[in-house]
Design a protein around this nucleic acid. Structure first.
Lengths: 192, 192
DNA sequence: ACAGTATGATACAGATCGGTCTCTATCTTA
DNA sequence: TAAGATAGAGACCGATCTGTATCATACTGT
């Protein structure tokens, strides 16, 4: 049965549209009028679902973070060794960089526009980025001693962030290739 | 002799003020009214020196890029081996991360807000980022074969960018330490 | 002293911002 | 069929945005 007035659908519709617009144009540059116009939604529908624009931004980030985590979880299932699991993460980034609507990292961009610690958007970004670092650490933990794992997971995290920036400047393939090589050097020391 | 009405001074005054405000609050969130107020300058003085706000942004970026390049040039003078020169760059980042008014990378933030290739701001950022990559490549060129140097310079570039992002999340010291260790692994392979 | 220039102060234009409000229409549930 | 919840459409608010125009003032070199 079709449910044209399903609140959950409208809500998701707004999140999806906001996600696309924020990705393409940034947060401050995207007005609420544009979001509701492209989402085909009334303004009050948006403000009934999200108290403020900042709250909408946070929900968009959380939604994408959940999507990202679920994706990496699934990819990791198909890998056995730590090295293979790291590889699946590079695989995901590689495909992401090649996607037609790649505009850089939504979270890094949010950090650029909301750089004040304590701001809801800033905190949402920090949470997601730390969760990626934790994922890397969990993968590398069993493969080397603790100090090495902490250092290596941070390094790979930084390589991924840097690669994303290079990708936004049109150097995605090269970036991912060199990041993989670097990760190999870093990991080669401890787990051969 | 004091020159209260020196055009060059006013111009620099605007660039300096805009730099601080852009760093602290971002580009779209910083209005021209705020810039001229904090620079103690009339609006027309600003628009006579910079045709548009975007043009001012580009000039701020160029000014900081020149400052950055000059700094790294000077630091490199005191180093002899490629490894030492790379270290001076890490040194600079380390001190930058610890500075009281650190708000992340002005250029990365500009890329976040002006992600359209061909936009003057985007192009200014790409030029500066590529110039840093070229610097790294020039340093590493003599120390290893060409393919290795290209890969290693990109890797160190990515580590620096990632470290800057971590620093913005309050993890600067850890980031720079782990980035240095990673760089050591990467360089250790080729130049011992 | 004079002409030319840069500046400050301020009002203004036209658009857009985030957010609120009202009113009507449509759906769901009972 | 009636009550209640949700939606759309759009006017509206005050503030702010980039950029322009005006005009008096203060400094410059000659």
């Amino acid at each position: 049965m079709p449910r044209p007035l399903d609140p959950a659908n409208k809500r998701q519709q707004i999140i999806d549209t906001a996600y696309e617009l924020f990705s393409r144009s940034g947060y401050h540059a995207t007005g609420t009028d544009r979001i509701i116009a492209e989402a085909n939604v009334a303004k009050m529908t948006m403000y009934r679902n999200f108290s403020t624009k900042d709250a909408l931004i946070v929900e968009v980030l959380n939604y994408r973070a959940a999507h990202f985590d679920a994706r990496l979880d699934r990819l990791a299932e198909g890998a056995s060794t730590p090295r293979e699991k790291i590889d699946t993460i590079f695989d995901w980034y590689e495909r992401w960089f090649m996607s037609i609507d790649f505009h850089g990292c939504l979270f890094a961009h949010a950090l650029a526009e909301f750089g004040e610690p304590g701001h809801p958007v800033f905190d949402a970004v920090a949470e997601h980025k730390n969760s990626l670092k934790d994922r890397l650490l969990r993968i590398l933990g069993p493969a080397m001693n603790e100090d090495q794992a902490i250092s290596a997971s941070d390094a790979i995290f930084m390589l991924l962030e840097g690669a994303t920036l290079m990708a936004q400047m049109g150097q995605g393939p090269k970036a991912i290739r060199h990041a993989r090589q670097a990760a190999s050097s870093i990991l080669g020391i401890a787990d051969g």
